[in-house]
Computed example of a mutant assay.
Amino acid sequence: MTQRAISLNLATTRQVWGFAEAVDGCLRAGITAISPWRDQIAAIGLDEAARIVKANDLQVTGVCRGGMFPAETAAGRQANIDDNLRAIDEAAALNADCLVLVVGGLPGSSKDLPGARQMVTDGIAAMLPHARASGIKIAIEPLHPMYAADRACVNTIDQALDICETLGETVGVAVDVYHVWWDPRLAQAIARAGRMKRIFAHHICDWLVPTKDMLLDRGMMGDGVIDLPAIRKMIENAGFYGPQEVEIFSQDNWWKRDGDEVLSVIKERVASVC
């Protein structure tokens, strides 16, 4: 397989580096693509973040995150849409490849999963005119079913692509291996996304056995059970060759390590096991 670039999702070093420090670390490591989170952008200021991106000719593979659409009231849903409009402005200021959506789960005490998914579709539809006018693609990130209640009621690539088909070509998917590796229809779903030209991002890490915390115990590539080369081949066969974005939430391991060490290991693992 051909060599592909690395993007650092800044969640991977969030406990040791802010936005500027992470960029400096990436440049030392020869990494020229990043994916920041909105709180990290806010901490340094949008104007300064944009200046750093432009001054260093960085590719911003995504801004994390928009979404969280479902709410119990119309006013709550509108407030969530308004926040997504601000997220689009932030992504546009950084010339990001896409705005990544974690769409949200069941609102309040609801048990209506189809209803929550409809709120997601309606919310994305409401933000789309501004996204298109701003030149920002929208990437729905399906999350593992364990998050269906509280974080994301869209749990498979196929579910995300159904929304994409409804809303049009500037809405696609972010394929995060942590969330989709288990799907028995993964190969077919990625191929479908390729035919639709809707793969906008490819996130990598690993699933540890045992996993101590379902949110904050992701593994470094090669330390778990995900067949990373197989998924990469599926994604490349589907026509996506963008950077592999490393996104590792690891409160008890990688978040405690020196950032330069983390990037060194990332480079080695991407070269050897991805």
Rank of each mutant, 00 (worst) to 15 (best):
Q3W: 11
R4T: 05
A11M: 15
R14S: 13
W17Q: 14
V23W: 00
G25L: 07
C26P: 09
C26H: 02
R28P: 11
R28K: 15
P36L: 09
W37R: 14
Q40P: 12
I44F: 12
L46Q: 09
A50L: 01
A50K: 02
I52H: 10
A55R: 08
T61L: 04
C64W: 10
G67I: 04
G67C: 04
A71L: 06
A74I: 05
I81P: 05
N84Q: 06
A91M: 14
D97Y: 08
G104T: 01
G104E: 00
G105E: 03
L106N: 01
S109G: 11
A125P: 11
P129G: 03
H130T: 10
A131M: 05
K137M: 09
I140G: 03
D150E: 07
C153P: 04
V154R: 00
N155P: 04
I157E: 06
L161T: 00
L161C: 04
V175K: 04
D176N: 00
Y178A: 08
W181C: 14
L186V: 08
Q188G: 13
A193Q: 05
K197D: 06
F200Q: 00
A201D: 05
H202E: 12
C205D: 12
C205P: 06
W207M: 13
T211P: 00
T211C: 08
K212D: 13
K212M: 13
L216C: 13
D217M: 02
G219Y: 12
L228P: 08
A230C: 11
I235A: 07
E236H: 09
G239S: 08
F240K: 00
F240M: 02
P243K: 03
V246R: 01
E247H: 05
S250V: 09
S250F: 10
W255R: 01
K256C: 15
K256R: 15
R257D: 06
D258I: 01
D260E: 14
L263N: 02
V265Y: 05
V270L: 11
V270N: 06
V270W: 11
S272P: 11
V273H: 07
